[in-house]
Design a binder for these strands. Structure first.
Length: 351
DNA sequence: CCCCCCCC
């Protein structure tokens, strides 16, 4: 091996006691930090470094030094020297380490081409769903989670602080079929799409890093952030184990339970009390419309229906007198319909 | 160090 190897420090050794650290690490994640309060001005380029013992540390390159390090690429392994060590942040902490690294103009970064196997490609600090409650509404750390996508809402465009953002709600389930909702923004809303969710060949299992954890309507709700990274169906033990665990427990649920599960999934988006107030059968709705005629245009109905066909209507301008309109009141749809359908049709074929 | 991760 190269003669320097015995002098590399592990990332968990790093502290403020000395300043001649010499590390060999993979840039496992990299992202730009933008000032969302101004015109998305670049503030820094941030990295998560990973060493051969699966230790992680957050490193940050301030805007003024970014040009010195233009060649750094996510995924590559580097030898890094002459950097600063400061206390890790107390808010929105990226990884669990007492310290973080700061690159300066004098920091030396050298690409190491050899031995890519030496360091894992990724390492996550996955938080089980039942522990998320301890992190909620604190913003001390950003949180990595793993789960199967079991619900996805259509893409929504909303305006926040004068900026137009794409947003989706997705629902993840863990190995115990515990479910949690995540709001994903912009590139993640585009990346997590129906193609991923309705692909029958593989359960969509994602890892999303650096999310915020909040309580909304007494339930936990995660949100992607600017420092988030998304990994779909990674070939790592955590993903494989979850997939295996979900497949094993699926056999213990009969089809009725599966149906109930998917119904509860779409209902869980709204407060259950609200649902029972609003819930009408299709017949009740039709009766209501028939008797009330055009007296009221302001009644809201939530009608669980299955769309059996889609008709293309003439241009909207020709029907502008129509007062009725369909609104997505249950924006999350089960993403596992694909499996269940194929499971049912297989059962039918056998019968 | 700033930015702080947006909405219902």
């Amino acid at each position: 091996m190269d003669r320097q190897s015995q002098r590399y420090n592990l990332l968990d050794e790093i502290d403020t006691e000395k300043d001649n650290w010499n590390i060999r690490a993979r840039v496992t994640r990299m992202w730009e930090v933008l000032n969302i309060k101004t015109n998305n001005e670049l503030m820094s380029v941030d990295l998560v470094l990973l060493d051969e013992k699966d230790n992680l540390i957050h490193a940050s390159i301030r805007k003024s030094f970014v040009n010195h390090f233009r060649d750094i690429q996510e995924g590559k392994i580097y030898r890094i020297k002459y950097f600063g060590v400061v206390k890790n942040k107390d808010a929105y902490r990226i990884v669990n380490h007492k310290y973080m690294i700061r690159f300066y103009a004098t920091t030396s970064v050298k690409l190491l081409e050899t031995n890519d196997e030496l360091i894992a490609k990724q390492k996550f600090e996955l938080v089980p769903f039942d522990e998320l409650k301890y992190l909620a509404d604190k913003n001390t750390t950003l949180t990595d989670v793993i789960g199967e996508i079991v619900g996805i809402s259509p893409m929504e465009k909303i305006e926040v602080r004068g900026k137009k953002l794409n947003k989706r709600l997705i629902e993840l389930q863990d190995n115990r079929r515990e479910k949690i909702r995540i709001t994903v923004w912009d590139k993640f809303a585009e990346a997590i799409n129906e193609d991923i969710c309705f692909d029958n060949s593989v359960r969509p299992i994602i890892i999303i890093t650096s999310t915020t954890v909040k309580t909304y309507m007494r339930k936990l709700s995660l949100s992607s952030t600017n420092s988030s990274k998304l990994y779909v169906n990674l070939d790592i033990p955590e993903v494989i184990e979850l997939r295996k665990s979900l497949e094993e427990t699926e056999f213990s649920l009969d089809e009725k339970e599966k149906k109930i599960e998917s119904l509860q999934l779409s209902r869980s988006i709204v407060d259950p009390n609200e649902i029972s107030k609003m819930k009408r059968t299709l017949l009740e709705t039709l009766t209501f419309i028939k008797t009330e005629k055009e007296q009221s245009h302001s009644s809201d109905f939530l009608v669980p229906v299955e769309i059996s066909d889609v008709l293309l209507l003439p241009s909207p301008s020709s029907s502008s007198h129509c007062q009725k309109r369909a609104t997505a009141v249950t924006p999350i749809v089960p993403a596992t319909l694909g499996y269940q359908r194929s499971a049912y049709s297989t059962a039918k074929e056998k019968a």
